[in-house]
Deep mutational scan, measured.
Amino acid sequence: IDAAQIVDEALEQGITLFVVNNRLQYETSRDSIPTELLNKWKQHKQELIDFLNQLD
């Protein structure tokens, strides 16, 4: 699994991931984030931050 897949998966569930001051953040209108997704974010945090920083 790679960062792009995780970002896409989040988007499919209505969650936008982004980076502020090198910290992973998210925006969503959902009430809660699925635990499975949160765990993936934690496991791949640095990859996600690097990936999202490249997009900007």
Rank of each mutant, 00 (worst) to 15 (best):
E36V: 08
Q43E: 13
E9L: 04
T16N: 08
Q43Y: 07
E36Y: 13
I6L: 12
A4R: 14
P34C: 03
F51T: 01
L55W: 08
H44D: 01
D2S: 13
Q5Y: 09
I49F: 03
N39I: 12
F18Y: 13
K42H: 13
Q43H: 08
V20D: 08
H44G: 03
Q25P: 00
E27C: 15
T28N: 05
V19I: 06
T28L: 03
D2V: 14
A10D: 01
D56Y: 11
V7D: 01
L48P: 00
R30M: 12
N53H: 07
Q5C: 08
Q25F: 15
L11F: 09
Q46I: 07
A4N: 06
I33M: 04
H44R: 05
V20P: 01
Y26S: 03
F51I: 03
Y26F: 10
R30K: 09
K45N: 14
I15R: 01
A10I: 02
A4K: 14
L17I: 08
L38Y: 07
L11V: 06
A10T: 04
E36C: 06
N53T: 13
D31A: 11
V20C: 15
K45V: 13
Y26H: 04
N53E: 07
Y26W: 15
I49S: 02
L17R: 00
I6E: 02
I1A: 09
A4C: 09
P34F: 02
V20I: 11
V7L: 08
I49W: 02
Y26Q: 02
Q13D: 03
N53R: 10
R23V: 15
N39C: 09
S29Y: 09
P34H: 03
V19K: 01
T28M: 04
K45Q: 15
Q43F: 08
A10M: 03
L38E: 06
H44I: 05
L17A: 01
L11N: 09
V19T: 06
L17M: 05
W41H: 02
I33W: 03
Y26V: 06
Y26A: 06
Q13V: 06
V19C: 06
N53S: 12
I33Y: 02
L24K: 00
D2W: 11
D50H: 09
F18H: 12
N21P: 00
R30D: 05
N39V: 11
A4Y: 06
V19F: 03
L48S: 00
N21G: 11
A3Y: 09
L24A: 00
L37C: 06
Q25E: 13
D8I: 15
I6G: 00
T28K: 03
Q5R: 12
L48Y: 01
D8T: 14
A3M: 14
R30N: 09
N21A: 07
A10R: 01
I6H: 01
F18C: 14
L52M: 04
D2P: 08
A3D: 01
Q5A: 13
L48D: 00
Q13G: 05
L48I: 14
P34A: 05
K40D: 03
A10H: 01
P34G: 04
T28A: 07
R30W: 06
K42C: 15
D56H: 13
I33P: 05
Q46N: 11
L52V: 02
I6N: 01
P34I: 03
N53V: 12
Q43T: 08
I1C: 12
L52Y: 03
I33A: 04
I15E: 01
S32V: 10
A4E: 07
K40H: 05
L55Y: 12
L55S: 08
T16V: 13
D2R: 13
V7T: 03
T16K: 15
T35G: 10
G14C: 08
D56P: 13
L52P: 00
D31K: 11
F51G: 00
F18N: 07
L24H: 00
K45Y: 15
T16C: 15
S32N: 11
D2Y: 10
V19H: 02
I1S: 11
N22S: 06
L38C: 10
Q43S: 11
K42Q: 13
T16Y: 15
R23W: 08
L37Y: 05
S32G: 07
E36Q: 08
G14A: 04
D56R: 12
Q46K: 11
I1Y: 10
T35D: 12
E9N: 04
L37I: 05
L38G: 03
I33V: 12
T16R: 15
E27H: 14
A3S: 04
E27A: 13
L11G: 04
Q54S: 13
A3I: 14
F18I: 14
N22L: 05
I33L: 06
I49G: 01
N22R: 04
P34N: 04
D56I: 14
Y26R: 01
A10K: 01
Q25Y: 15
E47G: 06
H44E: 01
K42E: 14
L48E: 00
I49R: 02
